[in-house]
Computed example of a mutant assay.
Amino acid sequence: MVLRLNIDQIEPATRDWICKVQIVEIGRPRESLDKKCTFQNLILEDEQECQIRAVMYTDEIEQYAATLKLFNTYLISTARVKVSPTSYGKPIHQFYWILDKETVIKQIKPSNEVEKPLPPPTKLTITSFDRIPHLMVDSAAEIDVLVVVLRCGPKKTPVAVIIGVEKLPFVTISKISSSSLYGRISAK
């Protein structure tokens, strides 16, 4: 019999479980330190707002690319559950999940009458672009920004114009590197 459990109830010895989760963060695919494999991290959140890291490796990244979308709700079962390493800092949960070919992932569509999708997460703190300069007291601070790219310049002069979810103001990004973007807020 399959047990419907929340993230906190699932550990490596748990068998025959299913969990309703929402994807609240999708990392970009990265190479391992030893360059032997590519992996991608996801942050999943359940109905109790408990979060866990899930990881996919090379084949699964491509397999699930069209299926796993930010803020969509899924029923996940048979993921491998492992103890989170603490050598890289404090993990968000004592365990993490590996999503592989054996994992069953079923999306819950908004039109589903039996199983409703989870509401948007409440742990997100959304700040409009006009508040960012007030948050930048420490120049080394990092801020995650949800935006839409409107236009990207040619490779020789990398400039991107992006807009926040509130539709104003624009931000012009003048330096684009593989790991970060630097820009200034303009009042266009």
Rank of each mutant, 00 (worst) to 15 (best):
M1G: 10
R4K: 14
R4G: 10
R4S: 14
L5C: 01
I7M: 10
E11I: 14
R15P: 00
I18S: 06
I18G: 02
Q22I: 02
I23Y: 09
P29E: 06
R30K: 05
E31M: 15
E31Q: 15
S32T: 07
L33T: 13
K35G: 10
C37W: 10
C37N: 14
C37D: 14
F39M: 04
Q40R: 02
N41P: 09
I43L: 08
L44G: 08
Q48G: 06
E49I: 08
E49R: 11
C50T: 13
C50S: 12
C50Q: 13
A54N: 09
A54R: 06
Y57H: 04
E62W: 10
A65P: 06
T67P: 00
L68F: 01
L68E: 00
L70P: 00
S77Y: 03
T78R: 15
R80H: 14
K82G: 01
V83M: 11
V83S: 13
S87T: 14
G89Q: 03
P91N: 07
H93K: 10
Y96L: 10
W97S: 08
K101I: 07
I105S: 00
Q107K: 11
I108N: 02
K109W: 12
N112T: 09
E113G: 09
P121Q: 03
K123L: 11
L124R: 10
L124C: 12
I126T: 06
S128R: 08
F129H: 00
P133N: 02
L135V: 04
E142Q: 15
D144W: 03
D144S: 10
V145Q: 02
L146D: 01
V147P: 02
V148C: 11
V149W: 06
K156H: 12
P158H: 09
G164R: 04
G164M: 00
V165I: 10
K167M: 06
L168C: 14
T172C: 00
I173A: 01
I173D: 05
I173G: 05
S174V: 13
L181G: 02
L181Y: 01
G183Q: 04
G183V: 07
R184V: 07
I185T: 05
S186V: 15
